[in-house]
Computed example of a mutant assay.
Amino acid sequence: MDTMNPPLPLGYSAVPAGKLANVVTCLEMLTKPAPKPVRAEDAALRLERWTDADLGEYRALFRAIGEDWMWLSRLVMPDEELRAILHDPAVEVYTVRDGDRRVGLMELDLRKDGECELVFFGLVPDAIGQGAGRIMMNAAIDNAWAKPIRRFWVHTCHFDHPGAVGFYQRSGFKPYAFLVEVIDDPRLTGEMRADASPHVPLILPR
């Protein structure tokens, strides 16, 4: 018997060195729900459409929001591919501002007929739990269902904020599928800080 690599329990699969395995939850809503209340003290927060987003500013906000939740895709996407997405008229990018500061990012993708995907939805760390998330979600639902869609959907993963799935469910989304994603650990490839996403164990190559 190989004592360095003992047999795995039934149903388990080994993840190669340097990789991360990520469980993704897919959720959808098929009808528009009633809006959730927004606290009066959050009315000063402003949601605005972000058109012609500068790639550097967009990625800086994307990183500030997502680096501790293992958001990677837009950091490594080629510039021309990202620019084409952000400037597509069927993709709507919104931010929440607290004064002059952007604290939230929301992206709706309507490129598929009859559907809207909530591609990204997040807040900078110090804005979490302060009411901006409900403002963004109410706006996401209103804007999505203002279009001729039959389905509004989102996916999140177990690397994301631990309250994400519950928040989406309270907002009217229902889980319908699990997926497993295997990626290179971006903290080992230099695409993220070595101390990013501290809740995800960093396993160094032997």
Results as ranks from 00 to 15, higher is better:
11 G>M: 14
125 P>Q: 12
135 I>F: 06
117 E>V: 10
198 P>G: 05
100 D>C: 11
34 A>C: 09
203 I>G: 08
151 R>M: 12
56 G>N: 12
160 D>F: 03
152 F>T: 01
41 E>V: 10
52 D>N: 13
162 P>V: 03
165 V>Q: 00
81 E>F: 11
22 N>L: 15
48 E>M: 12
104 G>V: 02
199 H>Y: 11
179 L>R: 08
166 G>P: 08
92 E>Q: 12
176 Y>Q: 01
76 V>C: 07
22 N>I: 13
156 T>S: 00
84 A>H: 06
193 R>E: 13
97 R>A: 13
134 R>C: 10
103 V>I: 15
75 L>N: 01
113 D>L: 11
78 P>N: 10
137 M>L: 12
63 R>L: 12
116 C>E: 04
150 R>A: 15
159 F>W: 09
193 R>Y: 10
177 A>F: 14
108 L>I: 04
48 E>I: 08
157 C>T: 06
179 L>V: 03
18 G>I: 06
128 I>P: 09
131 G>H: 08
16 P>A: 02
190 G>C: 07
119 V>S: 12
179 L>P: 05
117 E>M: 12
27 L>D: 01
88 D>W: 14
18 G>R: 09
81 E>M: 14
47 L>E: 02
82 L>W: 07
36 K>Y: 09
46 R>K: 15
175 P>W: 01
132 A>R: 10
35 P>Y: 14
77 M>S: 13
39 R>V: 13
138 N>F: 11
66 G>S: 02
91 V>L: 07
66 G>W: 00
59 R>S: 04
89 P>Y: 10
117 E>P: 09
76 V>N: 08
99 G>T: 03
57 E>N: 12
63 R>G: 02
5 N>K: 14
162 P>T: 00
133 G>D: 04
1 M>F: 01
138 N>G: 11
59 R>W: 12
154 V>N: 04
35 P>H: 13
153 W>H: 05
205 P>K: 00
161 H>E: 07
185 D>S: 09
169 Q>A: 13
19 K>T: 10
101 R>Y: 10
27 L>N: 05
38 V>M: 15
56 G>H: 09
199 H>V: 11
181 E>M: 05
201 P>A: 01
198 P>R: 08
202 L>C: 13
17 A>R: 11
19 K>E: 11
153 W>E: 00
91 V>M: 05
68 D>Q: 05
155 H>T: 04
4 M>H: 15
